[in-house]
Amino acid sequence: MKNKALLAALCLLATTACSTQGQVDPDVMQIATRPLTCSNKAECDLWWQRAQTWVASHSKYKIETANDSLIQTAGPDGGKRALAFEITRAAGPDGTTTIGFSAHCDSSLGCKPNPWEAGADFKQYVRGTTGTAASAPQGSATPSQNAPDATHPETMPRNTTRLPNGEVMSQ
């Protein structure tokens, strides 16, 4: 009887823990889905430099590509919760430039950190509107992971969501 009660309590606890996973704070969601668009070359160059700095200090994976239009890390490794990133830079017809962000992992347990939170942190850092941990590089050996934007859906894992603004977030 004691074992059944203990088992029931553990099941309830597990169900409760799972029910809170996947919920994203509306403020975080709003920041993460807001387009990252710059309007002049100086601002865009600064933002692109910040984007590369952020990825270098937050990715557990090595940066494989870093050029004028793409910042991409290795990964994700099979079954790992760490985020892999892809940041894109595309000029718009109106003279603006949009920096896209995508983050994904390859774990059935979800990503750590949450891709939405990583996306919001990335965008705040690139815009220069945050003084949080995003501004403090964590070192290349064990940086935390965050999310870049994917304009190439074929590179995204199975749990991917395309936002109304064209960005991709996945878990």
Rank of each mutant, 00 (worst) to 15 (best):
M1H: 00
K2C: 01
N3Q: 15
N3G: 05
A5Y: 00
A5V: 00
L6D: 03
L10G: 04
L13E: 02
L13W: 06
T15C: 15
A17Q: 12
C18Y: 13
C18D: 11
S19M: 13
Q21F: 15
Q23M: 10
P26M: 07
D27N: 14
D27S: 15
V28H: 09
V28C: 10
M29Y: 13
M29C: 05
Q30S: 14
A32D: 03
A32K: 02
T33V: 10
L36E: 00
T37L: 07
C38H: 04
S39N: 11
S39V: 12
S39W: 09
S39F: 11
N40H: 14
K41N: 10
A42Y: 08
A42Q: 15
E43L: 12
D45I: 04
D45L: 10
W47I: 02
A51G: 05
Q52F: 08
S57P: 00
S57M: 01
H58M: 07
K60M: 12
K62P: 05
K62D: 07
I63R: 04
E64W: 09
E64L: 12
T65N: 12
A66W: 06
S69A: 14
L70M: 07
L70T: 12
I71W: 01
A74V: 03
G75P: 05
P76I: 08
P76K: 07
D77Q: 15
G78S: 14
G79M: 14
R81E: 14
R81I: 13
A82C: 07
A84T: 05
E86H: 09
E86A: 10
I87V: 15
I87E: 02
R89D: 04
A90G: 13
D94V: 11
G95F: 07
G95R: 08
G95A: 07
G95W: 06
T96L: 01
T97S: 06
T98Y: 02
I99R: 01
G100F: 14
F101L: 10
D106N: 15
S107Q: 12
S108E: 15
C111R: 02
C111N: 06
K112W: 10
P113F: 06
N114R: 09
P115V: 08
P115R: 02
W116S: 05
W116Q: 03
W116R: 01
E117R: 09
A118K: 01
A118N: 05
G119I: 00
A120Y: 04
D121N: 10
Q124A: 08
Q124S: 09
R127F: 03
G128P: 06
T129S: 07
T130L: 04
T132F: 15
A133P: 00
A133L: 11
A134C: 05
S135K: 14
A136L: 12
Q138F: 02
Q138G: 12
S140G: 06
P143T: 03
S144Q: 13
D149V: 10
T151G: 15
P153V: 05
E154Q: 14
E154V: 11
E154S: 15
T155I: 08
P157L: 10
P157Y: 08
N159K: 10
N159Y: 10
T161K: 11
R162S: 07
R162K: 11
R162T: 14
R162M: 09
L163E: 04
P164F: 05
N165P: 06
G166H: 12
E167K: 04
S170T: 12
Q171P: 09
